[in-house]
Computed example of a mutant assay.
Amino acid sequence: MDTQVDELKLLVVKAVRMLERIELLDNNGHVSVRIPGTDRFLINSRKASRASLSVRDIVLCDMDGKLLEGDSEPPSEFHIHTEIYKRRDDVGSVVHNHPHYQTVLGIADVPLKPVFGVGAFVQDVPIFEDSSLINTRELGIQLAGKLGEESSVLLRHHGTVVAAEDIKSAFTISVFLEENAKKQYDASLLAPSIKVLEGENLERTRTSNWQPSIIQKLWTYHQEKAEKQGALSGITE
Rank of each mutant, 00 (worst) to 15 (best):
T3F: 14
T3G: 13
Q4I: 12
Q4H: 13
V5E: 12
V5I: 14
V13C: 08
K14M: 10
R17G: 05
E20K: 15
E23Y: 12
L25I: 05
D26F: 12
H30A: 06
V33E: 02
P36A: 10
G37K: 06
D39W: 06
D39G: 11
F41M: 10
F41H: 08
I43N: 08
I43P: 04
N44L: 04
S45C: 14
R46H: 15
S54Y: 06
S54L: 08
V55T: 11
V59E: 01
V59H: 09
C61L: 09
D62S: 10
D62H: 10
K66N: 13
K66Y: 07
L67N: 08
E69N: 11
S72Y: 11
P74M: 04
P75D: 01
F78K: 07
H79G: 04
H81A: 06
I84P: 02
I84D: 00
I84S: 00
I84A: 02
Y85F: 08
R87L: 00
D90I: 01
G92H: 05
H98S: 07
H100Q: 15
A108L: 15
P111S: 03
P111V: 04
P114I: 03
F116G: 02
G117Q: 13
V118C: 05
A120M: 03
F121Q: 05
S131Q: 06
S131D: 10
S132M: 12
T136E: 02
R137W: 02
R137S: 07
L143K: 01
A144K: 00
L147V: 00
L155H: 01
H158I: 00
H158D: 00
H158K: 04
G159T: 03
V162A: 03
V162I: 09
V162L: 01
A163H: 03
A163V: 00
A164S: 04
A164T: 03
A164P: 02
E165M: 08
I167P: 00
I167K: 05
I167H: 03
K168Q: 07
S169K: 10
F171T: 00
I173H: 02
V175D: 00
E179T: 08
K182Y: 04
D186R: 15
D186F: 14
S188R: 13
L189C: 10
L190K: 15
L190A: 15
A191T: 10
P192M: 11
K195H: 15
K195V: 12
L197M: 11
E198H: 13
G199Y: 11
N201Y: 15
R206D: 07
R206S: 09
Q211D: 09
S213M: 14
I214S: 11
Q216H: 14
Y221D: 13
Q223M: 12
E224D: 14
K225F: 14
A226Y: 00
A226W: 01
E227A: 08
E227N: 06
A231P: 02
L232K: 03
S233K: 15
T236L: 12
